[in-house]
Simulated scan of single mutants.
Amino acid sequence: MAFTLMKSLRGIVSSELIRAVGARTFAASGGKAKKGSKGGAATAPKASTLSKEVKSTTVFGANILKDEQDPKILPDSEYPDWLWHLLDKRPALSELRRKDLETLPYEDLKLFVKLDNRARIKENNSIKAKN
Rank of each mutant, 00 (worst) to 15 (best):
G40R: 02
A92S: 14
K35S: 14
K35N: 13
G22N: 06
K122V: 00
D70V: 08
N124R: 12
S29F: 11
K72D: 12
A33I: 10
S51M: 02
K128S: 01
V13K: 03
T103S: 10
R98F: 07
G61C: 15
L87V: 05
I18M: 14
L50I: 11
N117Q: 02
F60H: 01
F60Y: 07
L5P: 01
G40L: 04
S29R: 13
P71C: 12
S51Q: 03
R90L: 15
K32Y: 12
L93C: 05
T43L: 14
N63M: 09
L50V: 08
T58W: 07
A41W: 01
L86F: 00
K72T: 11
D70M: 08
I12W: 02
D108Q: 13
G36T: 07
L111Q: 09
L96R: 04
V54D: 15
F26S: 14
P105C: 10
N131Q: 06
I121W: 09
F3S: 02
G39H: 10
F112R: 08
K110L: 15
L104W: 05
K89I: 01
N63Y: 07
T58Y: 07
G36I: 09
R98W: 06
G61I: 01
D81P: 05
L83T: 05
V59P: 05
D76F: 10
T103W: 00
L96Q: 00
R19M: 05
D108L: 02
K66L: 11
T25Q: 11
P71V: 12
L17H: 01
K38M: 08
S48Y: 07
G31Y: 01
L101N: 05
N125A: 08
G30R: 02
N117H: 00
I121K: 10
P91K: 04
A42N: 03
F60K: 01
H85Y: 15
K128C: 01
S48L: 14
E16K: 01
M6P: 03
N125K: 06
G39F: 11
S51W: 00
S51L: 04
G61L: 05
T103K: 07
S56V: 02
T49I: 11
G39Q: 13
L74N: 04
S29Q: 11
L83Q: 06
K114F: 14
K128Q: 02
E16R: 00
V54H: 04
W82L: 06
P91E: 08
P45G: 10
L115D: 13
K7W: 08
E107R: 09
I64N: 11
P80T: 01
S48C: 14
A41E: 01
L109D: 09
A2C: 08
A92H: 11
W84F: 15
L101G: 05
K55N: 04
